[in-house]
Simulated assay, not measured.
Amino acid sequence: MNTPITNTPQQQIPIHNTPDDRLNSRPHVNQGRQLRRHHTTRYYIHRVKESLTTRISKLICAVFLSLVFIVGLITFILWLSLRPHRPRFHIHEFSIPSLAQDNGLASAQATYNVTARNANLNIGIYYDTMHITLYYQNQNIGEQPLLFPFYQPPKNSTILYSTLSGTHLVIDEARWASLVAARMRGTVMFRLEVASVIRFKVAGWTSKEHKMHANCNIGVGPDGMLIPSYSIPKCPVYFT
């Protein structure tokens, strides 16, 4: 009679898993590591591409900024060397000789000597018709057109010399009496305005027209001659 064989705990054969077997028995762990390794490779490839793109962008920006700086520097230098300066006007002589006489109205005339200076280094100036106006107490007492358009080269001076008399100098008896009264006080003040239309010339280029006005304050002594201190300052020049 056969007796059935039963396995007791002592008769069971223990099964031990090696570390590799444990890893193999957990496929999700290996899969996770493979995914992490795959993600890391893509990440570094992306970082390399991003780094190259950043470097190229920085290089393009550096080249662009360098070009802008160079162009700006050249423009600034050209502007410094070519920017037009306004003409400079000075009164050198002015006289009303008959002002020293109480009855000098009949022979009244005003002689002036004005210097126009082009102080530019590389820029010439074209002057169209020029107009001279003499004011006393802000009233026009004489005017004269100078009908000779001319070109003034750089670093050049032009003398404007003429006399206001006859129909170009309008002084009535009341105004003459005011002039004599001012002479008795020591100084007679006048204002001489030089007006013209000018254009600047640089090489083969000519600017648009500018209406120019120069106002020269004039102080005349009892002898009817220009007081020396009024020949020192330059006349203010403005454009309209």
Rank of each mutant, 00 (worst) to 15 (best):
S207P: 00
P14L: 13
A100V: 10
G224Y: 03
Y238A: 07
H90T: 15
N215C: 02
Q139H: 14
N30Y: 00
Y136F: 14
V71M: 10
C235I: 00
P145T: 07
L169Q: 01
N7H: 14
G72V: 00
D21W: 05
V48E: 14
T129N: 06
I96R: 01
H85Q: 02
P153W: 07
Y43G: 11
I15D: 06
R22H: 06
I56Q: 14
G166D: 01
Q101P: 01
A182R: 02
N113G: 09
H46V: 08
E173I: 06
Q152A: 09
H168Q: 12
P97L: 10
S165L: 14
P222S: 12
M225T: 11
M184I: 10
I5Q: 12
I171R: 02
V170L: 13
T240M: 12
V29R: 07
D128K: 08
H213L: 12
R117G: 00
I125F: 01
I232N: 11
K201I: 15
I5A: 03
R42N: 14
S229P: 01
Y127W: 04
I218P: 03
N140E: 09
L169A: 06
R33C: 12
F200Q: 00
M1V: 14
Y230H: 03
R199T: 02
S231K: 11
R42S: 13
G142Q: 05
N118I: 04
F200C: 00
Y151H: 06
N24Q: 13
V197D: 08
H90Y: 15
L179S: 03
L23Q: 03
Q31V: 08
T75Y: 09
P149M: 01
L59R: 10
I13W: 04
A174Y: 05
I91F: 01
L35D: 10
N215K: 10
S157H: 04
P19F: 09
L80T: 08
R42W: 15
L99Q: 05
P228Y: 05
E209L: 01
